[in-house]
């Protein structure tokens, strides 16, 4: 159905490969099984994922990377469960933009899980481009984040791993959340009963 359990937002500056990442993930892995929205485009993709014997449907929201729409990005990640911030290791500019989003996410949606994703790994491994973002800096940044992956949409390397990790984390989180809410409900009910009893006693 049109409902998705998890909302995952893709952020990143222009031409870092957000759309390619989504296309790779959605079309290759379960290619035969679910040819979801091949014709419509990669702006929004929904996919069924499995984590710990439970099915979840995730909706991946692509965003426009162009700088002129940067102001509106906030509308996109409102209520997102997870965000993937993409950067290009060979472009320092993309990294600076990443810091901006990171900061915004921290302040606006603090419950949102953030994953860093360095794209175009194949180019990096092949030596076609030079690494501009130092690995140490990335590591320091990703320490207090939920994860960091270097992916290649061309070969499909690490793409599935990235999304699987996100779903696993969210699923675990949901379990926790559920138990929390249930226990809270129980408590409130108990409170009500108590208060009623109190009233009666009086």
């Amino acid at each position: 159905m049109s409902r998705c359990d998890f909302k995952i937002v893709l952020l990143g500056s222009e031409h870092v490969g957000k759309t390619s990442l989504v296309l790779r993930f959605v079309n290759c892995r379960f290619n035969a099984e679910i040819p979801y929205q091949n014709t419509v485009g990669a702006a929004f993709c929904a996919k069924a994922m499995r984590s710990k014997e439970k099915d979840y449907s995730i909706g991946i929201w692509d965003t426009a990377g162009s700088e002129r729409y940067e102001a509106m990005t906030r509308i996109y990640y409102r209520g997102a469960h997870a965000a993937i911030i993409c950067y290009e290791p060979s472009s320092h500019e993309s990294w600076t933009r990443l810091r901006h989003w990171l900061h915004e996410l921290r302040t606006v949606e603090d419950s949102c899980k953030v994953y860093l994703c360095g794209t175009k790994k194949d180019l990096l491994d092949g030596g076609f481009v030079k690494r501009e973002v130092a690995e140490e800096i990335v590591n320091t940044y990703s320490q207090d984040l939920n994860g960091h992956f270097l992916t290649s949409s061309k070969t499909g390397e690490n793409v599935d791993e990235l999304f699987q990790k996100i779903v696993d984390d969210l699923a675990a989180d949901v379990e926790v959340m559920k138990t929390v809410t249930e226990s809270r409900l129980l408590l409130t009910e108990l409170d009500k009963r108590k208060s009623k009893k109190d009233v009666c006693a009086c």
Partner: peptide
């Protein structure tokens, strides 16, 4: 989105 056909449209095409 179909305006961007045949290439799969991304958010970069959709929003403008």
């Amino acid at each position: 989105l179909r305006l961007a056909a045949p290439a799969p449209a991304s958010a970069d095409d959709l929003l403008p």
